[in-house]
Amino acid sequence: MTIHASERASRVQIPADFPHPQRLAGRDLFIAILGEPSPATFARWLAEGKLPKPRKLGSRNRWPETIIAAARDSGIA
Rank of each mutant, 00 (worst) to 15 (best):
M1I: 12
T2V: 14
I3A: 03
I3Q: 07
H4W: 10
H4Q: 13
A5F: 06
R8L: 15
R8C: 04
R8D: 06
A9H: 04
A9W: 05
A9G: 06
S10F: 08
S10D: 14
V12G: 03
V12D: 04
I14F: 09
D17M: 11
D17C: 08
P19Y: 00
P19G: 01
P19I: 03
P19F: 01
P19V: 04
H20Q: 11
H20Y: 07
P21Y: 05
P21D: 03
Q22R: 12
R23C: 09
R23P: 02
R23K: 14
A25N: 05
A25S: 15
G26W: 07
G26E: 02
G26A: 05
R27Q: 14
R27T: 15
D28P: 06
F30N: 04
F30V: 11
I31S: 01
I31E: 04
I33W: 05
E36R: 06
E36M: 15
E36I: 00
P37G: 01
P39Y: 02
P39W: 04
P39H: 07
T41W: 02
F42D: 04
R44N: 05
R44G: 02
R44S: 05
R44I: 06
A47V: 00
A47Q: 12
A47N: 11
A47K: 14
A47H: 07
K50D: 01
K50W: 04
L51E: 03
L51P: 02
L51S: 06
P52W: 08
K53G: 13
P54A: 10
R55S: 10
R55H: 12
R55C: 06
K56W: 11
L57R: 14
L57G: 08
L57I: 15
G58D: 10
S59V: 12
R60L: 15
R60N: 14
R60Q: 15
N61K: 14
N61P: 05
P64V: 00
P64K: 03
P64F: 02
E65C: 04
E65S: 03
E65P: 00
T66A: 03
T66K: 07
T66P: 00
I67F: 00
I68H: 01
I68A: 01
A69R: 15
A69G: 05
A70I: 08
A70P: 10
A71Q: 11
A71F: 12
R72E: 14
R72A: 15
R72Q: 15
R72S: 13
R72H: 15
D73M: 12
D73A: 15
D73F: 13
S74P: 08
G75D: 12
I76Y: 04
A77F: 11
A77M: 09
